[in-house]
């Protein structure tokens, strides 16, 4: 615990992500202004006491929109990582259990193929199929997280299953499902959590890209990526428009990347010494 507090990237990552989560939670009950209210008289304002981070081309309060946008980003991350983690873990464990069989090979080749498609491109394809929208984008991002988790789970599970106490458990008559759930999953949980943190950051970045392209979150729901694409038209007149939402994305991605890095170091100090 003390070690965790002294680890710089863990500390910074944890504080930043806690801050973002807190802002998102607060936005459920309170924002500085109504993020949806337009005000023709207060368009494209710079930051001030009234509008902390200024207003957009409709006179909406940027600070409030960013807070609601944080909720949006975290939801995307949570659902996309959730889909990837659950399906990936299931497929990875299935492959590990079927180690060396045709089933294992089939699962892994399929995942390789999915993985070869770049994440945003895949999302574009899916969005083409289903129409643009937050749900479609999140499902797309989630699906393409599956191979990442599946590969990791399979590799780690195979390592765990070679250990002696697993053999002992098997000899004692424990069934395969029981071995996987009681022995393997707890052992690879740390690794999966680290990866979840990193993929969380990837998902936020991917949703921002899709929303920037108009393929993700649809208006009027505030999304950091869409705020940037709106900003592009007006940033010559009000540069702050392009700065705050981008900073929000960068901060959120940085937070979860650092958190993941920190967790990895804390779970396995050897990795840090090797400079990985």
């Amino acid at each position: 615990m003390m070690r965790a507090l002294r680890h710089p990237s863990f500390l910074v990552g944890a504080v930043l992500s806690a801050l973002i989560v807190a802002l998102a939670l607060v936005s459920l009950v309170w924002t500085p202004a109504d993020p949806g209210r337009m005000n023709i008289l207060a368009r494209l304002r710079p930051p001030s006491a009234e509008f902390w981070l200024g207003t957009d081309q409709f006179g909406r309060d940027i600070a409030s929109m960013l807070m609601v946008g944080a909720r949006n980003a975290l939801t995307v991350g949570l659902v996309a990582v959730g889909i990837g983690l659950v399906l990936g873990l299931a497929l990875g464990l299935l492959a590990a259990r079927a180690d060396g069989t045709i089933l294992d090979a089939a699962i892994m080749r399929l995942l390789d193929f999915v993985f070869a498609f770049p994440i945003v491109l895949s999302a574009i394809l899916i969005v083409t199929l289903l129409g643009p929208g937050l749900v479609e984008a999140v499902v797309a991002i989630g699906l393409f997280n599956v191979p990442v988790f599946a590969r990791l789970a399979r590799g780690a599970a195979l390592q765990v299953m070679r250990r002696d106490y697993i053999r002992a458990a098997r000899l004692a008559g424990a069934g395969p499902a029981r071995i996987l759930l009681r022995h393997v999953v707890p052992n690879i949980a740390g690794l999966m959590i680290v990866q979840a943190s990193v993929q969380f950051a990837v998902a936020i970045l991917a949703e921002a890209s899709l929303s920037y392209l108009g393929l993700g979150t649809q208006p009027p729901a505030p999304s950091w990526g869409r705020m940037l694409s709106d900003a592009q038209t007006f940033m010559a007149r009000q540069p702050f428009l392009a700065i705050f939402p981008g900073a929000a994305i960068a901060l959120a991605v940085l937070a979860f990347n650092l958190l993941g890095d920190g967790l990895r170091d804390l779970l396995d100090p050897r990795l840090r010494e090797r400079g990985a």
Partner: peptide
Amino acid sequence: SQLGLAIPNFWFGLLFVLIFSI
């Protein structure tokens, strides 16, 4: 480099336009 990882390429693009073009 941590910062570089976190900044989306399109935000880099917007900032460049803001600074070097506008």
